[in-house]
Design a protein around this nucleic acid. Structure first.
Lengths: 139, 139
DNA sequence: ATAGCATATGCAATTAAATTGCATATGCTA
DNA sequence: TAGCATATGCAATTTAATTGCATATGCTAT
């Protein structure tokens, strides 16, 4: 995914700091979501643990990143598809969580409509498929 | 949901202890899933924190309970629909996570089939709808 | 019914994760 | 570039989860 961190920050009225830029760069590197612990491993030398927490939180609040919880309750972050804008920010695609390498992919597949029982009103629906990803299948 | 804790334990070759029975009773009380912290609050006086962890883990391994992670990465547990047997234990129904009271419901709705991209093989699919539940809507 | 064994429990101690407060550093605006 | 708002890093604290071990308890075979 090609992004312009500096511009993205400006668009969201966030100060341009090297830590914030680094986080965005790191996350944008891959199409798969990256877990908070992995980010910490990669950036731990350059960015304080607490700062990383705070940056991830602001990004999520601003709708720059979205957070996907994996089966272990670990937070994973991804800059999602270009169809996500501020006004219309729907993470309404299917995620794929590989049970071998634990990577989370954002699939370009629409979340199917689900009929709610009487009384329940759904705002968003999240679907996650668990299985083996293309890379692990190739091995 | 009506269950017979003692029998359920026997079926799974688990020793019948009062702690294990209490946990099952507590979880079976409601159709909604209960979170680990809530269980701890309710049973904390009778059951040691560590024991509770261990009981929940064994139950999950044995397929007696299934674990649903909520948006905060908190584990929630439910005895799922009667269609879940040992041999064929599929939690393949939709969950509903209320964003007001945070309760998680197991809806009697089948998870829709999702077409996977080339290379990905899905074992299970989990769908969670977020919104307002019947109780909160009624208020 | 009970002896003996496997294992579940509770407690203490440890490890790991997340949060908070505050002083300093940095980016942005006028 | 001065001044202000706020982001960062560090220390300290709080909270959560894990591990090891002694004791207690349930289950099987006698």
């Amino acid at each position: 995914m090609i992004i312009d961190p500096v511009n993205l920050l400006k668009e969201h009225d966030l100060k341009n700091t090297k830590q914030r830029v680094r986080v965005l760069e790191e996350i944008a590197l891959d199409t798969v979501a990256i877990s908070q612990p992995d980010l910490e491993k990669k950036l731990g030398k350059e960015i304080d643990r607490v700062t990383l927490y705070r940056i991830l939180n602001t990004y999520e609040e601003k709708g720059i990143l979205h957070r996907i919880m994996d089966m272990n309750g670990t937070a994973n972050y991804a800059i999602c598809s270009s169809s996500c804008s501020e006004a219309h920010h729907h993470d309404e695609h299917v995620h794929f969580n590989c049970t071998k390498c634990f990577k989370i992919y954002c699939l370009e597949v629409e979340v199917p409509r689900i009929k709610m029982p009487k009384g329940f009103t759904a705002k968003t629906v999240s679907s996650t498929a668990y299985g083996i990803c293309e890379k692990c299948n190739a091995i």
